[in-house]
Design a protein around this nucleic acid. Structure first.
Lengths: 344, 344
DNA sequence: CACAAGCATTAGATCGATCTAAAAGTTAAA
DNA sequence: TTTAACTTTTAGATCGATCTAATGCTTGTG
C-alpha cells in the first residue's frame, strides 16, 4: 500500500456523481449545498463523497466561478511584532469567512510591492489588504481599480479612493500630550524614527497640534536610530536640545523601550527625572520596570477591521470607499511623574 | 472610463496569441520561457502581452499542470513574535523561489489544524510547512503521505517519516546549565509553561541530562502561567522550592522577562541575588536592564531551513526524510553572576 | 535527389469544476 | 383530462491554461 497507488489521482466530482448515480451537475449542487437538491439525493451524494475520500478542487472551481476564496495580504515587515498582531487579526476574520490568506512581505520597498501585487493577481486573489510601503504612489491604486481588484489600505492612508482601516494617531498623540500637560510638563520631546509615510506624518502633525493647543513649543522632534540597541546609545540626543525636555513621547514602544534602557544606563530615573510615554502598548510595556505608560493602538482589532472592510466590499463592490479609524486608549502605568518634582 | 469596461474581462492567452499571429500553444511556451520558440516569435508574443496588459492566470495553469506555486504554512500562534520571525524566514525563501505562502493559524488545536490542512489541500498547495499543534497524532502524517502532499515539520518533531527543521533544544539547555555551573551554581531551577509537545519535552530532558551530568539535582521544574503579567506575580513560586535556587533557566524569554519584572518588584537583584537565563534571545533581551543572558535559537534561520527542505523535496519527492537541526548560541549579557556571592 | 534529423509551430484533447437552459417528474388547479 | 406551476435533475458548453503528438520547414548527408 506504500507505493503503486501514487498514480491514482484524487477522486473527482464525476467519480462521486457516478457512484451516487446522479449527474456531475447534481453533485456540484450538493457541494455548494444548494437548496435545489432533494434530501435523499443529497445524502446519497454525501455518502459517495465520504467513501471516495473526495476533496474539493478549488482551483478548478475558481476557473469557472470567479471567486478564489483567497485574500492577499502585504505587510512591510514581518519581524515587527506589531505587524504580526495585525496579521493575526486579519487572519482570524478571513479564516472565519472560510477564506485563506496569501501572505507577502514588501520590506517597505515600492518595486517589491508592485511585484507582489502582480503575483497576487496572477494567483487570482479576490482582494488585497496592504499596508503600503513608504513612497507608494497613486498608480498602485489606479492600477488595482482598473483591474477591478478590491483593495484595503491598513495603517497607512495613501488614497481616498480606497478603503482604509487604521488608528487615530493624531488623537493618540493628543491623549499623550494632554496627559503629560496635566502633570505639569511643558518641554515635551517627540522621539521618532523610520520611513516617512502617512502614519508617520499623522503622528507628527498630531503632536504639533496638541502641543500648540497647550501653548507649548512643538519643535522638539528628535530622530533616533531604528535598532533597539542603537536607540539606547542615542539617548543623549534628548539632552542636546536647546531646552532640556522633562518628558518624551515616543513614536512607538520600540523607541520607548530603547530610551528606557539608555536612561537606566545613565542613571536617570524614569517617571521621576524624566517622564516617558510609548505608543502601541505592546505586551512588553507591562513587563518592563517601571511599567511603561503607552498609547494603545490594538493592532489585532485594526487587522480585524481591515478584513471586515474587504469582506463587505467583496459582498457589494458598489460601496463607496470607507474609512474605519479606531480610537486609541492611553494606558497609564508607571513611567510618568509630575514635572514639578524636577530639579534640573 | 470609470464604468463600462468592467465587463471586458482580462486578456487571455488566446487573445495574446491572435494578436501575435501565433497559436495558443506557442504563446504558452513563451510565458514559460521554453527554449523551443524562436527569438523573433518570442519578442512578437512578448510585445503582444505588453500591449494587451496580459496577466497570467495561475489558476487555469495549475488545473492542467500539477503545480500551484503555493506553500501552506500553519503555525500555532501568530501573536508570538517568535513565530512571526519564523514566518518571516519561511516567507523570504518561498518568495525567492517565486512561490507564495498560504498562511493559517491553528491556535494549537488539533481539530482546527485538521480543518486547515484540508483547506490547504483543497486550495492545491504544493506542500505544507507546519509547526504541529500539541497533541498532534500520527494520523496527520499518514494522511498527508497518502495524499502525496509533502510536509515539513518545524520546531516540533512529531514524526520521523517527515522532514523536520528545528533547533537543538537539548544542546541549548546544556549550554545554559554548563554556563551557570561554571559560575558555581548548583541549585538551578527550570521555569516552564505552555502545552506539552516534543519541543517542550526536549528542553525538559535536556535540562535533566545536563544537570545530572554535573551531579546537580534536576527536580526543580516550576510551572508558571502563560501571560507575562501573571508570570511576574508568580515569581514567589521560585522560593517555595525545597531548596531555594541560586539561578533560574527559563523555557523562553517571555518567562524570563516576566520573572525579571517579578524579581524587580521584590527587590531581588538579578545577576547578584539570583541569576537568570532566557531562551530564544528575542530582541528585547538586549533592551531590558540588566540585559538578559539568553540562549539564541534564531527563528528566522529555522524558517529558512524549513522552506528550503520543502523546496528540495518538491524538486525530488523520492528523498529520504531529513532532519535539519540548528545549533544554539549562548548570548551572555548581564543577568548572571557568580553563585559564591550569594548570602541567603 | 531522397531521406533523415533537427527545429519551430500548432490543432485538439484535457484538467475539474460551474453555468445555462432545458427536460423530467410531481402536484395542484381548471 | 389537460394545463399550469413547481421542484428536481441533467446534458453540454465553458473557464484559461498545458500537454501530446503531429506537422511544416530547414539543413545536412550519402
Amino acid at each position: 500500500m506504500v507505493s503503486g497507488d501514487r498514480k491514482k489521482s484524487r477522486a473527482t466530482l464525476l467519480d462521486v456523481a457516478r457512484r451516487a448515480n446522479v449527474s456531475r451537475a447534481t453533485a456540484s449542487l450538493v457541494i455548494r449545498n444548494s437548496p435545489l437538491v432533494g434530501a435523499a439525493t443529497r445524502s446519497r451524494v454525501e455518502a459517495a463523497m465520504e467513501e471516495l475520500g473526495y476533496v474539493y478542487n478549488m482551483g478548478a472551481a475558481r476557473l469557472r466561478a470567479e471567486r478564489s476564496q483567497t485574500v492577499g495580504v502585504i505587510v512591510p515587515n514581518l519581524t515587527n511584532p506589531f505587524f504580526a498582531e495585525l496579521l493575526a487579526g486579519i487572519e482570524s476574520v478571513v479564516d472565519a469567512a472560510g477564506m485563506v490568506v496569501l501572505l507577502a512581505n514588501s520590506a517597505d520597498q515600492v518595486d517589491r510591492q508592485n511585484t507582489l501585487v502582480r503575483r497576487m493577481r496572477e494567483h487570482g486573489v479576490d482582494g488585497i489588504i496592504v499596508c503600503p510601503a513608504a513612497g507608494t504612489g497613486v498608480e498602485l491604486f489606479e492600477r488595482l481599480a482598473d483591474w477591478g481588484l478590491p483593495l484595503v489600505q491598513v495603517l497607512r492612508h495613501f488614497s481616498a479612493q480606497a478603503d482604509y482601516a487604521g488608528v487615530d494617531y493624531a488623537g493618540g498623540m493628543r491623549q499623550a500630550v494632554d496627559y503629560l500637560s496635566s502633570l505639569g510638563h511643558e518641554r515635551i520631546a517627540f522621539a521618532v524614527h523610520g520611513p516617512v509615510h502617512p502614519a508617520y506624518q499623522e503622528r507628527v502633525d498630531g503632536f504639533r497640534d496638541a502641543m500648540c493647543s497647550h501653548g507649548h513649543d512643538a519643535s522638539m522632534i528628535v530622530r533616533v536610530p531604528s535598532k533597539i540597541a542603537q536607540i539606547a546609545e542615542a539617548t543623549q540626543l534628548l539632552f542636546e536640545q536647546k531646552a532640556e525636555p522633562t518628558a518624551v513621547i515616543c513614536f512607538n514602544d520600540v523607541i520607548a523601550l530603547g530610551l528606557a534602557a539608555g536612561l537606566y544606563d545613565r542613571g536617570i530615573a524614569i517617571g521621576r527625572d524624566l517622564s516617558l510615554v510609548g505608543f502601541d502598548d505592546v505586551t512588553d510595556a507591562e513587563a518592563v520596570r517601571p511599567r511603561l505608560t503607552s498609547v494603545s493602538t490594538m493592532p489585532v482589532a485594526i487587522g480585524e477591521n481591515a478584513a471586515r472592510l474587504l469582506l463587505e466590499r467583496l459582498a457589494d463592490p458598489a460601496l463607496q470607499p470607507r474609512r474605519l479609524v479606531n480610537r486609541t486608549t492611553l494606558h497609564v502605568r508607571q513611567s510618568c511623574g509630575p514635572a514639578a518634582v524636577l530639579t534640573l
